[in-house]
């Protein structure tokens, strides 16, 4: 049994220490918002926050998450940054199939939490680990800028 903190709540999970957090979330806790895309930290679909920083949960063992705060897509409506990102994602018509978007939103919100005025280069750097096969990249860039503007009161 390990105890991990997910979205501010302490959770008991029965999984071996090397189980990737992605599968702990999905299979043990039934939180399916975080997606599997590659299992090799190459696509970003599984992105969550570990103490606020974006990490690929497919390659993060449970043991490395103990004692840290995990935040998932399911909690993003409860934060100002998450709300701003979700609103701009709708306004810019970002999602297509939606499958990669949990990861995109987690990467984007982590960026905006530490940088309220990201440049194109900042956005490219923060987002280039998140593949979207539907090709929503232009829209994501616009949505990040819109969310940044709304967070800094420029909207």
């Amino acid at each position: 049994m390990a105890t991990i903190n997910v979205n501010g709540r302490s959770m008991q999970v029965d999984a071996s220490p090397d189980t990737p957090v992605l599968w702990v979330l999905r299979d043990e806790l039934g939180m399916t918002g975080t997606k599997f895309g590659c299992g090799m930290a190459l696509c970003g679909a599984c992105t969550v926050h570990l103490d606020g920083a974006p990490v690929r949960s497919c390659s993060l063992p449970l043991s490395a998450a103990v004692g840290h705060r995990i935040t998932t897509i399911e909690a993003m409506s409860g934060t100002p940054v998450g709300k701003a990102v979700q609103a701009s994602w709708v306004a810019q018509d970002v999602p297509q199939c939606g499958y990669c978007q949990s990861g995109q939103i987690m990467s984007a919100s982590a960026l905006l939490a530490r940088n309220r005025k990201p440049t194109d280069a900042d956005i490219d750097q923060a987002m280039s680990g998140n593949i979207c096969r539907c090709g929503t990249y232009n829209q994501i860039r616009a949505a990040i800028k819109q969310a940044a503007a709304s967070l800094t009161g420029r909207a």
Binding site: R26, M31, T32, G33, T34, K35, F36, T72, I73, E74, M76, S77, Q86, W89, V90, A91, D93, V94, P95, G98, Y99, Q101, S102, I105
Partner: peptide, 20 residues
């Protein structure tokens, strides 16, 4: 340019794919 009616679930982790 109507914003998508189906977006909310994809932005909150509530989409329901077969794997889910």
């Amino acid at each position: 340019p109507v914003t998508r009616l189906e977006d909310a679930r994809f932005l909150t982790g509530q989409g329901r794919y077969v794997g889910d």
